[in-house]
Nucleic acid binder design. Sequence first.
DNA 1: CCGCTTTTGACAATGATTATCAATAGCGTT
DNA 2: AACGCTATTGATAATCATTGTCAAAAGCGG
Lengths: 128, 128
Amino acid sequence: MKRNTWQREAVREALESSEGFVSAQALHSRMRDTESPIGLATVYRALASLASAGEADSLQQDGESLYRACTTSHHHHLICRNCGLTIEIEADAVEAWARTVAAEHGFTQPSHVVDVFGLCGACSRAQA
Amino acid sequence: MKRNTWQREAVREALESSEGFVSAQALHSRMRDTESPIGLATVYRALASLASAGEADSLQQDGESLYRACTTSHHHHLICRNCGLTIEIEADAVEAWARTVAAEHGFTQPSHVVDVFGLCGACSRAQA
DNA sequence: CCGCTTTTGACAATGATTATCAATAGCGTT
DNA sequence: AACGCTATTGATAATCATTGTCAAAAGCGG
């Protein structure tokens, strides 16, 4: 049976109070600073559990997995390469396109990864 | 100055003769089996170089980077989760959508990651 | 409160990738 | 063709995120 622990809840709350995507390591160290001590392995397990339950998004950048609390059911992201600012975007057209493309080629159980990266307004100006 | 070495060329050829995406490790071991010996670090460097020069696609699955020779200028992929079969897909509509979304939010230098995963026809039948 | 089982957490282990650095090999020059 | 300079290679060590291990701690039903 699945049990409720304060650790799992703490990870969920920490994730929800985060801006943009965070790595498991970053979330862990932030939790160690503020809240009660929690093990690193536990953070990893809680994040994986949240992600597979559909309560968190995950994406892979460089060699690490980043997580974010899911607000709406399904959406994509516009992410600043420099500062990490993340904007959620809806794209029904893209959803439909992905399903169509998969079906056209005989693929079943389609899922997709759609993320747009760029430099946000502030970082664009800073770079100039 | 950039120099031409047989190693870099060998990696390019090995990548072009591969079906679907391959990891650096897999490409290295295949090269060790058939062609002349080459260092693992060199394969990593060559792949990174090809990817940043736009001559190879890369995507991250689980914790590793997978590479594939670029045939056309820009495209996306439909990938079988089970057997790795990869189909290249063109999606001008998605390209345009990504640029539009980025611009709407003040983002510059947009790039995007768009991949569709699923089970190919053969694997769908095998699973049933 | 008991007992059973899941979960935790400190630490070790893994596995992909990158850094190190001496030896090698392009390539322009002589 | 040999020379010199420097980019590149490659064996190995180092790094770093993530996962496995397993004894101790903590849910939860009875």
